[in-house]
Amino acid sequence: MKHLPRLADGLLLCGLGIAMIVVAATGDSLLYVRDVMTVPLILAGAVVAVLGISMLVSSDADPHTPRSFAFVGVAIAFFLVIRPGPLSVSAGIAFDPDTRTRVQQEFEIPRESLVGADASTADIEASAFELHAGQLYFAAQQLPAVFDEMAIRMIGQFELSDDGDTRLVRFRINCCAADALPLVTPLDGDLTGVATGDWVEVFGQWDGDADEPGLDVVSIRSIDTPDHPYLTIRDP
């Protein structure tokens, strides 16, 4: 048989449409693509489901759907059953992006986050301003003196590299996880209690220079995978 039977064809179309709607409506799509794709995914899923229903109720002749269409069954299984997680720091993203030359950030620093260079852990945790690695690289080039005084909170995946370096990694995507680039922040301090791949929240203060920005960590703890695991081009 060279073609899929009508029933299988229609069910696959309906299944794919429903799977696209579910993965977008539940927020699972944010583990793979940007949030701007949520509505297009729902609309496209509705269209595909309509096509499937039309196939099931149609009285036309054999639709001659090629067997290759059965591959969409694999996609349905990944959307609804397997549901892989977001990219991990252990992923072999073999790029070493020179992010410092491309990050052009503008953001306001709240006055209350300027706690001074000798602030306590409690003060830092209470006053910290959340930054991501792109902003930290910007700071390294533009505002290093300001950051000496600042309490900083960052989230990302913890990584202990083979050579013993400790880093915080957050991927930035433009379209989807396939074009993810890692933004890396070197960490220093007491980093016990977490393991490579853990999503963590770190508090600390600026520790670096224009060539190698980093964070002197005063506290670190594991957190659940955030709803938006990736940074995108729209992040400030």
């Binding site: 793979y32 794709m37 995914l41 996609a75 997680g85 977001p86 989807c176 996880a177 396939a178």
Partner: peptide, 9 residues
Amino acid sequence: TLFTAMVLQ
């Protein structure tokens, strides 16, 4: 993850 992302996109 890469496969799912590429298909969804």
